[in-house]
């Protein structure tokens, strides 16, 4: 039983067991290592990817569940106008220290601004509730999202 996933705009033939959580297929088989394993429990946001434009954790849900979805990882985000804008804004705001949570944050921020281009700081605060950061970069992440929203 072979699985095909559409990832970053390309169809990818997957050899892993379709029950394998998407994150392990991305990282181990496809060598897309931008999404991180933070908890494996859908509690921290480090493994977020876009699935049909929505920011979702990839560490538990089996890859097969994503078969009919457009999956975009942090590596493919720059090809979306909003994604590139968010990435730029994160750099300008210096919105990361260690950077382990950043891919998930950039994905979550992109999903937010694609759905709500004018989202403000308070909206961003709520939208990123599922993303943990331990270095305390939160205010700068909010700065970045605010700036990315204003530069549409």
């Amino acid at each position: 039983m072979s699985l095909t996933l559409r990832i970053n705009g390309r169809d990818r033939q997957i050899d892993s067991d379709p029950d394998t959580p998407l994150l392990f297929v991305l990282r181990d088989e496809l060598k897309l290592k931008g999404a991180k394993l933070g908890c494996g429990l859908e509690q921290c946001g480090a493994c977020f990817v876009l699935a049909d434009g929505e920011a979702v954790p990839s560490c538990v849900t089996p890859a097969a569940v994503f078969a009919d979805k457009q999956v975009v990882t942090i590596e493919g985000l720059a090809e979306r106008e909003t994604g590139a804008r968010v990435q730029r804004a994160f750099v300008d705001a210096r919105a990361a220290q260690c950077g382990y949570c950043t891919a998930g944050m950039v994905v979550a921020a992109t999903a937010l601004l694609e759905a709500e281009p004018g989202a403000d700081r308070d909206r961003a605060r709520v939208a990123l509730e599922r993303n943990i950061c331990r270095c305390g970069s939160h205010p700068r992440v909010l700065d970045a999202i605010e700036k990315a929203a204003k530069t549409t």
């Binding site: 897309l32 931008g34 991180k36 590596e75 985000l77 990435q87 750099v91 950043t102």
Partner: peptide
């Protein structure tokens, strides 16, 4: 200037120990 590594971090291209690969590597 942006700190060293930040450009890579926002693109998911910054390699942490957790991301390393070696030929024949075991997990």
């Amino acid at each position: 200037a942006p700190p060293l590594g930040l450009e890579e971090i926002v693109r998911g291209a910054y390699a942490f120990v957790q991301d390393l690969e070696r030929p024949g590597m075991l997990h």
